[in-house]
Design a protein around this nucleic acid. Structure first.
Lengths: 149, 149
DNA sequence: CTTGACCCTATAGTCAACTATAGGGTTTAG
DNA sequence: CTAAACCCTATAGTTGACTATAGGGTCAAG
């Protein structure tokens, strides 16, 4: 990709879409590019590098807000790596928690499914809505972000 | 909780909130309850059971739409357990996939963090935005539902 | 008879990361 | 010269499960 590219070609080069690029610009993840006489955005390969970086960082499960902060630090002349290391460490802790939760949930699911083969289609005892589900212990995790009040 | 309870007490009994209960009613997860002369909702303990069931099913990571379907089957007189067993099996498969993805991502994170201690704060080589992130292989999973185009 | 706790409806906002639509202007190939 | 393929802005919609707000009515205690 050479300098002066329009948004469509940048999108193709980056494996993104035109709308997404404009969206990132609105969010401040990409700087406002130069414009042609008729108002078209004209990009340099720096934009392509930024887009690739954003994808990398998303692969590391950073959110766009965090990526924006990393980019800001970088372009303020400081290496963001120290800050990023902290973020990565936090991400690792989160992942550990999610793994533990998921593994616990898997145990529950397996136990319930096993049990379901022992009571094959009992004709719903009056009180229960679904005995199969009701044997699930409520200690199970909720979807992430689920807060109880 | 006795019959004729108003929504606030039901919410307390179920560990939920007034808004959430009304929301479930709008979605069709709870039937329209009786009303007092002044228009207040009056609940029986069946509503409490339904709410508890919903929480159980959410703990099993069913979505509200699926829960609605289970409740519909149940109140159409058929035991939903067969259908539910299939759902639980699907859920188990999903969980297996998520676990594998997460474990893979954890390996990547650990490798990157290890490496980051070997190159302690190199003063950002001109081209890179953040060498730490850029060493992450882009094979990493994206957040669930992330589709590339 | 007023204060406060409760209840009602309807509508809009939250989060994240887009995606789509309406309603236009520009550029290039034939 | 026209039609396709591109570009622009601004705004609204998507998903899921809520949460909040506005603007009112009801009920029991003091």
């Amino acid at each position: 990709m050479k300098d002066g590219t329009r948004i469509g070609e940048l999108a193709r080069a980056a494996g993104s879409t035109v709308q997404t690029i404009r969206y990132y610009e609105r969010l401040g993840l990409l700087p406002s590019p130069a414009r042609s006489a008729s108002g078209y955005r004209l990009y340099t390969r720096e934009a392509l590098e930024r887009l690739r970086f954003i994808r990398q960082a998303q692969a590391a499960r950073f959110r766009l807000e965090e990526i924006k902060e990393i980019l800001r630090l970088r372009y303020a002349g400081r290496s963001p790596c120290d800050c990023v290391r902290k973020m990565l460490e936090q991400r690792l802790e989160e992942v550990e928690r999610e793994l533990a939760d998921l593994a616990r949930f898997r145990r529950v699911l397996r136990r319930v499914l096993n049990r379901s083969q022992q009571l094959p289609r009992l004709p719903h005892s009056a009180s229960a809505i679904c005995p199969l589900i009701e044997t699930i212990p409520s200690t199970g995790r909720k979807a992430k972000g689920g807060k109880n009040k």
